[in-house]
Structure formats: structure tokens, C-alpha cells
Write a protein that binds this DNA or RNA. Sequence first.
DNA 1: CATAATGTCTCTAGCGACTAGAGGTTCAAG
DNA 2: CTTGAACCTCTAGTCGCTAGAGACATTATG
Lengths: 138, 138
Amino acid sequence: MFSIGELSRRTKVKVPTIRYYETVGLLTAPERTEGNQRRYDRAGLQRLNFIRHARDLGFSIEAISSLIELQDHPDRSCQAATDIAAAQLSDVRAKIRRLRALEKELLRITKGCDGEGVSEDCYVLTSLADHELCERQH
Amino acid sequence: MFSIGELSRRTKVKVPTIRYYETVGLLTAPERTEGNQRRYDRAGLQRLNFIRHARDLGFSIEAISSLIELQDHPDRSCQAATDIAAAQLSDVRAKIRRLRALEKELLRITKGCDGEGVSEDCYVLTSLADHELCERQH
DNA sequence: CATAATGTCTCTAGCGACTAGAGGTTCAAG
DNA sequence: CTTGAACCTCTAGTCGCTAGAGACATTATG
Ligand SMILES: [Zn+2]
Ligand SMILES: [Zn+2]
Ligand SMILES: [Zn+2]
Ligand SMILES: [Zn+2]
């Protein structure tokens, strides 16, 4: 049995975030002391570690909710879990593709000016004003 | 002189977004008709195109504000503009690095289960519960 | 010229995932 | 028993929009 601060230290999740997870239903409300303070057990710790790991991997709160729901029913098919993970992977890949396109254009833009000149002739500003100068879509 | 709807059509920026840009000071308030409706000119169109392009490249509203400020003073040094663009590039690259690490782990995780089994034995769920299974930091 | 349809106005609230702060209570150490 | 850190709830702010309500303006058609 440990306090919210202790749980925070062990999971590296900030105290207000833990309370936030409780209000949105990701964490079930733990026991309280007589003085109304939260006390967590090993199960609470594990659950929060799960949440933190999934958040670090970019899963949404909603997705994590579904995953936890599944975890709580060991006999159910895990199809939903693999679907969620696959969706997350393709999401990440889409983001990478987009960012790579941005990187390309930003590289061209930053290379075009050394910052020694004056705003009027700046390639950075000119490029931003005209998408036609871009090599690809983004 | 054209309406906000016309401006929206020409720039592909939604009407409420245009109004939002005005409230946060990105767009200067345009003239109004007698009936209080906004009327834009060519300069307004150019400015909004600039904003949209910069937003598409991931610049923050604040960064765009600075860039526009600079654009309005053609005689100033453009150092700030190149700094902002360089910062944006390194930001994008940091995001790419992070997402690539996520992609790696998510690939491992999704490969580990075909979704045919049961929640209890699911590699997706097990992996999320234990960061030790991850090959790298993320 | 009257009406109807579409466009526009302001204002407020909501999204996701927190984060910060105020003002008050409880706990643990000395 | 006192002190100070940790805890409590509640509200509001972050970013960049987006959606909706209810009212007014403009434009197209008959
Ligand atoms: Zn320059
Ligand atoms: Zn472009
Ligand atoms: Zn599985
Ligand atoms: Zn991990």
C-alpha cells in the first residue's frame, strides 16, 4: 500500500496525471485512507505501468481503455488488441511519411539562406510565401 | 474585394479558422461592409497563403507571427527567420527519430501475435505490460 | 420588389492529454 | 505537538482549431 506520490515515483507518471487517468476511467479508483488519501497496491502499479508504456508508444487513452478492458477478460479473443496495435503502427508510419516530406522541404528552405541578408531577400520567407517552390507535396 | 467564404475557397483554409487567425493576431482585421461582413483584398489573400503554407510545414502560430513581423519590415536582418526555420527542422527531425523508435517496437509487437488466440496469451498485451521486452528506449 | 436560400456575424463550448494554481486538509518526522 | 511536506478538490489554461446556437446580411430567383 503506497501513496500517490510513491506511485508517481515508481512509474515516472506525474501525480496530477495519475489523478487525471482516474477521472477519465483509465485507472479504477483506489482505496482511501480515513483522511481521504489514495492508497495503491501492486495491481494499481502494474496497471499504471501498462498505461505509461502504451502512452509512450503513442496509443490514445481510448485505445488503452480497450486494451485494459481486454486484459481484464483473459478468455476473450485478442483480435481487438492486434487490430489496435496494427492501427497504431500504420498511424506512426503515416506520421513518419509526412514528417519526412516536411524535413525535405525544410532542409531546402534552411539551406537557401545563411541569415546574413535582409528580410526582403530572404529565401526562407520567399519559400514560405510560395508553395510552388516546393519540390513535393506535403 | 472578396468575402471570407471566397477567401476560404481560394486558400483552402476553413472560414472559422480564418476568423481564429484574426483573433490571435495572425491576420490583421480586414475592412467591413456596411453590414459588418469582412472583405479581403489581394494582400489578405497572400498573407493567408503564407500562413497556410507555414502551418502545413508545421510552424507554430507563434513562429508564424514572428515570420510575418519580419516580412513586414523588409530592411531588417533575416537572422530570426533562418533561426526559426532551423529550429523547426530540428524539431521535425527529433519527431522522426522518436517515431522511428516507436515504429520498431510496434512492428515487433504486432508481429508477435496474429490475433487468433486469447487475451491471456496475447503478445501485444504482454509487451505493453513489460517495457523490458522492448529492444530499445523510446 | 418580395421572398427564399445561402452566407456571415458573435459568442460559447468542446476536442486530447495533460499542466498549473488556489485554497484547504492530512500525514509523518522530530 | 508542531512543523512541513504531501495530499485533497476544483477551476482554468495550453494548442490549434472545430462545432453549434441564434441573429443579421447578401444574393438569386420568381
Ligand atoms: Zn534569410
Ligand atoms: Zn510547400
Ligand atoms: Zn494477441
Ligand atoms: Zn518499451
